[in-house]
Nucleic acid binder design. Sequence first.
DNA 1: TAGATTGTTAATCGATTAACAATC
DNA 2: TAGATTGTTAATCGATTAACAATC
Lengths: 227, 227
Amino acid sequence: MTAVRAVGEPVDVRRSARRVPPATVSRLPLYLRALAAFAADGVSTTSSSTLAAAAGVGSAQLRKDLSFLGSHGTRGVGYDVANLSRHLTVALGLTSQRHVVIVGVGHLGHALANYSGLAGRNFSVVGLVDADPRVVGTTVAGLEVQPADRLGRVVAASGATIAVIATPAEVAQDVCDAAVAAGVTGVLNFAPCSLRVPPEVDLRVVDLGSELQILAFHDSRKADAGA
Amino acid sequence: MTAVRAVGEPVDVRRSARRVPPATVSRLPLYLRALAAFAADGVSTTSSSTLAAAAGVGSAQLRKDLSFLGSHGTRGVGYDVANLSRHLTVALGLTSQRHVVIVGVGHLGHALANYSGLAGRNFSVVGLVDADPRVVGTTVAGLEVQPADRLGRVVAASGATIAVIATPAEVAQDVCDAAVAAGVTGVLNFAPCSLRVPPEVDLRVVDLGSELQILAFHDSRKADAGA
DNA sequence: TAGATTGTTAATCGATTAACAATC
DNA sequence: TAGATTGTTAATCGATTAACAATC
């Protein structure tokens, strides 16, 4: 179905909030990280080709991606590192704190809770939850691990909007449902299973097994080619 | 540029080795996992819509994906679970063992070394390497952790083709270079930095920080819409 | 001004989706 | 045969890339 629109009537371009394609959104963190490295090295200006190389993409793609956020460079000169960082940070919504709850405090949950890249980036882990009575009550990354059945209360009390699921596959869907019911709007799933969430909830998946199998695919084709 | 081809001359269709698009390859593990769950439940036949639902994709996409691997279903009936599993396993190159070396045995490396999804799927972790002298010599997941400067020898001796990098960002590129020099053909990078590898080496990236920032992006747009 | 580099356009490419003929 | 479901085609959609006019 195509929306009817009178000729000359403007397309939906709300000021500074034009639609950013998903593929572009997924690369913005790479640019932000590369910019942070430049800033740490005392570099104050960069070009699309330099920044793109640092982020591992093409310069045309970088400029195209940035163009969705507006025009923040200077022709003939390049980009101001601090200024572009600021714009990317705003575009990604990283200006206000995001509260994160981690469900499942095994080795992986442990690693995530201690991940240093969070605090500095306006993410704060506000709750840890586990079903294992031997883990509940222990302190990890400065937080006391709560029993699994309190997940809903932990989310509600902390105002967490993001749940990270690092549980076994068997309980992942139940945990996810509970987190969503308690109000999270984003879920990051490390459990090796597919999860169903309502359309308004954003779901990202990290699956070690799949990644390795994809590597195996290419690996085997190389072996074939070499044979 | 379009290749000139005489009318009636066959397109490049080498028997059972046609080109599989990357997007399709990345979904094959999902299908394989869903099929394994069906088999565990005693289900012996399935349809594209049932399997697609279990994998979290559309049925048209599933059929399109499978069509790149050949024709393994029966019209009017569906797919035999065991048979399709076998074909997917072969297509992904999971019939021969892949040897994996994990570099960096912090919490994350620990979690990966103990990940149960590996052994059952023809992956075997054959080496652990770390730079921290307090970690070197300890036993993790049944393996003794080797010092970092032995990475090359560990790869060569074990015949590992895949390196998993779970080190701090600062040393990730050096570690990666060493692993590639020693002969790995696939790299899975968990370090929060971009890596450069030669074109013949396959690189996959898992970046927790990026995933959270992408969730934050959608989160903030919801907050705006609600405000 | 001359050189450099952005922001944008247009062309290409690949991925997704819907529809349906083939066929069990 | 009638109903069901695949495998494939064609249409749509989105992403990437190259080229270049705008402009510092």
